[in-house]
Nucleic acid binder design. Sequence first.
DNA 1: TCCTTTGTTCGATGTTCGTAGAACGTCAAA
DNA 2: TTTGACGTTCTACGAACATCGAACAAAGGA
Lengths: 114, 114
Amino acid sequence: MVDVRDTWHPDPDEMNLTEVMSALSDPIRVGLIRLLSDGEERGWGLLRAPVSKSTLSHHLRVLRSAGLTRTRMEGTRCFVVLRRDDVQSRFPGLLDAVLTAADNQSVGSEVSLA
Amino acid sequence: MVDVRDTWHPDPDEMNLTEVMSALSDPIRVGLIRLLSDGEERGWGLLRAPVSKSTLSHHLRVLRSAGLTRTRMEGTRCFVVLRRDDVQSRFPGLLDAVLTAADNQSVGSEVSLA
DNA sequence: TCCTTTGTTCGATGTTCGTAGAACGTCAAA
DNA sequence: TTTGACGTTCTACGAACATCGAACAAAGGA
């Protein structure tokens, strides 16, 4: 059984403002975006968040289906990267503003690496 | 009986990113912000949204307690204004980015004036 | 061929949210 | 004083959400 959600990513034109804002309304998801803000691709195994495996999977799906991240499979492992340029082209300035504000307020600091 | 929620507005330092993002995750609230984006103070009676009176009151309270708008009473009438400078000082670039994106996508166009 | 690792999916649960209607308080006008 | 306009609050309800554990699927190793 093929699940569309596994591989689908929205094009920049398909990204929805309300969905993106909603995706960025959760501290854990903001923390994940902050970790990825340097543009590096990261394996899920490196992501440390105070939630269960299934909840983390859920949050990463929300980010992906909003268009904020891109997920790539390699064997049984997943790698995720921030779609910074795509988001910038669709919503100029939005991601930078959120990242700046999140840094200032330490939003999502419960999420870490390694 | 005094209700704190009637008059309380957060200082810029008290504004919370997650709360602001959440407040801007609803199309009707984004529409209200768009209407107020010219900086003019507007009476509630001028706001036209496809929701009931109580629901509109709820949305305006969410915007107010997030710090996005300021509400002033005058007799039995209410006036609301966008706190553009306060939001800009706390979250530089955020409001502009959201307004630009909302205009491009016509988010909240179901809200109108008069 | 098993077993481990990795991530998804499926209930289940408790919470929050958007919504509406009814009741209330307040102020102004008739 | 009575009536009407205006906005808030209370209550209720369904939908959506965050969370978890368990079951599942796929890919490599032992």
